[in-house]
Design a protein around this nucleic acid. Structure first.
Length: 609
DNA sequence: TTAGGGTTAG
């Protein structure tokens, strides 16, 4: 043999040896013969030289050997562009329909999984071809199918394949647990996890991460504690990045800090995935200084590191900082992605930088080749409408190449209301009404617009629709963290142990805000009741209860952080601004759509949310 | 040569 097997295997993780071997094989005239060509492709793939691997593969005479083909596909999957897998494979599949072996099938399903939700129809066609192939009983291929259907958000299809697997393998169990958990099938995920033959770190991570992704952060955190109690050793940091994410989603700053300590204790602070999650967690928990501290400590900042701090700064109304960070990102040679531009345009819309936002949108498309999504158009629309360019915003929503959804119309409607353009508001409200929204907040917005225009028939129509569609206004609650404990207050709640002190402070503050010209704005109260009752409802909104409790219990001068499950209403927003002046306290409120930073009578959202 | 768990928007 001209090339010993040892050399071939050494070249797998050694780029220069792979290239030297390639030269040698060209001299021997063997570079395009199997198995040498396949080994070379594999070496290039594993040496992280995917383009070398693909160039060699494409130079081979047809039909390709399946080993060379699957090695080339591995190169595609390892590269940052898994779409290459399809462009490479579709012509081969058309010309040689029976050529794929089990290795090719498994690697191709892996490619489809990483491209989901795109190309589902092609993926299903390939699944059909696999079923009619001589490899249809291969369990490794079936495991890749379980993972693929999970990533296509089709856990029932994944389960059907999973049930056809003949012998146990860890990969299929992990993929199925993850598939259930991430797609909102919490009970099925837990049930499968309980009977799993091997509950290793992979299975725990699949379950915990999946629950975080489907919005079950509290369940995920409880399971993480259980995992620690069961003595599962945290050998790699993957589960930690998800746990940090759970703290971020639930806005649990103190717990987030404890997990940060655990990350340091276990020696994973240099892992960029975990650091990125920490940056996001601190930003989402309203501690932007801590987020910056973690960000500055990341040695090799990637696009997610930069984007996390840009988005965090933007959400806290620090537009100039977000834009300066973007300049830093460009100088550091890190290419922005579609999420970066969402953050940047969000920053611009908050301070009315219309020209800059428009320029960023152009640059995203022309300089970075990013196709704008509905969310980018919604950002652009927000930018126009917030700064009063309502006609341009409406024109955009009617001409953009993607269909507007309920939040898009709601954003425009909110801007019309803010700028007092009743005529356009009614036009937009009619569009929103025709979409039959499911969100209670949209109905309230609609009802307010019609009520403002004196269109009582439509007000009643909106309320009837709410009843017909069984849309109920979710009970409002606010959460406040004090020390290591957090407290939840529901709107109108009067059962708290300190209810008398809370009510007394609220009355005192009410007197103070009225002295400063506050007049209750009851437009967000839907029910037919007299003015006094409407004002009473506002008075007991959950964020006010949480704030009063925070003022009573926290260390004077410290920041008060509140998280609310609904949007802050206009009236509470006015009151919170005034209270920040009266008490000389900074108040952060994270609601469902915005971050509000109340300080000295102003809010970082510029009264627009 | 093929299969499983991780971070940024919404």
């Amino acid at each position: 043999m001209l090339v010993p097997q040892a050399v071939l295997s050494q070249a797998r993780h050694n780029p220069s040896l792979a290239q030297a071997l390639h030269s040698h094989l060209i001299k021997c005239g063997l570079h395009d013969r199997h198995p040498y060509s396949a080994s070379l492709i594999d070496s290039y793939a594993k040496s992280r030289l995917p383009h070398h691997a693909l160039r060699l593969f494409l130079s081979l005479p047809p039909p390709p050997h399946p080993v060379a083909w699957s090695s080339a596909l591995s190169a595609c999957n390892l590269s940052s562009n898994p779409r290459l897998s399809l462009s490479l494979s579709l012509p081969i599949l058309r010309s040689y329909p029976t050529l794929p072996d089990h290795f090719v099938f498994a690697t191709l399903f892996n490619s489809f999984a990483s491209l989901a939700p795109l190309h589902l129809s092609l993926a299903k066609q390939l699944h059909a071809r696999f079923l009619f192939s001589p490899f249809s009983h291969d369990d490794v291929v079936k495991s890749s199918l379980v993972d693929m259907y999970s990533k296509f958000s089709l856990p029932l299809c994944a389960r059907a394949v999973f049930d056809s697997i003949s012998s146990f393998n860890k990969a299929s169990w992990t993929a199925m647990i993850s598939g259930y958990a991430r797609n909102g099938f919490k009970n099925e995920a837990l049930k499968l996890f309980r009977v799993a033959p091997n509950r290793d770190l992979f299975a725990w991570t699949a379950l915990i991460s999946g629950l975080v992704q489907s919005g079950n952060g509290v369940d995920a955190l409880q399971l993480f504690v259980k995992m620690l109690r069961e003595g599962i050793e945290i050998l790699d940091p993957l589960v930690l990045s998800s746990v940090v994410g759970a703290c971020a989603n639930c806005a649990l700053l103190e717990l987030g800090k404890q997990v940060h300590c655990l990350v340091i204790g276990l020696g994973f602070e240099s892992c960029v995935f975990v650091s990125n999650a920490l940056v996001d967690m601190y930003a989402k928990c309203s501690d932007l200084d801590a987020a910056k501290g973690v960000f500055l400590g990341i040695l090799r900042k990637d696009v997610v590191s930069w984007t996390s701090i840009i988005v965090g700064s933007a959400q806290h109304g620090r537009a100039e900082e977000a834009l300066a960070l973007y300049d830093g990102m460009v100088s550091a040679g890190v290419k922005p992605n579609e999420v970066t531009f969402v953050g940047l345009m969000y920053a611009c819309s908050h301070v009315g930088l219309v020209g800059k936002g428009r320029e960023l949108f152009r640059s995203m498309v022309e300089d970075h080749g990013i196709r704008p999504s509905l969310q980018h158009y919604t950002c652009l629309l927000d930018l126009f409408s917030r700064s009063g360019h309502l006609e341009e915003a409406e024109n955009l929503v009617r001409t953009m190449p993607v269909a507007p959804d309920e939040p898009t119309w709601a954003a425009l409607l909110s801007a019309c209301k803010h700028h007092g353009n009743a005529k356009m508001a009614i036009r937009i409200a009619d569009n929103l009404l025709s979409l039959k929204p499911e969100e209670a907040s949209s109905y309230i917005l609609l009802s307010n617009v019609y009520a403002g225009a004196g269109m009582w028939e439509n007000v009643s129509k909106v309320r009837k629709m709410m009843m017909l569609m069984d849309v109920k206004k979710e009970p409002g609650y606010s959460c406040i963290e004090l020390g290591k404990e957090s407290y939840v207050f529901y709107a109108g709640e009067t059962s708290h142990l300190m209810k008398d002190e809370i009510a007394a402070l609220m009355r005192k503050l009410d007197e103070e805000v009225r002295k400063r010209g506050y007049v209750p704005d009851t437009s967000s109260v839907l029910h037919d009741m007299d003015q006094q009752e409407k004002e009473r409802q506002l008075f007991w909104h959950s964020e006010r209860l949480a704030l009063a409790y925070g003022l009573l219990k926290s260390v004077p001068g410290t920041i008060i952080r509140i998280v609310k499950n609904l949007r802050v209403c206009g009236d509470c927003h006015t009151v919170l601004k005034l209270i920040s002046t009266i008490t000389s306290r900074e108040i952060y409120v994270r609601d469902t759509t915005r971050y509000h930073h109340f300080k000295e009578g102003r809010c970082s959202c510029n009264d627009f949310w």
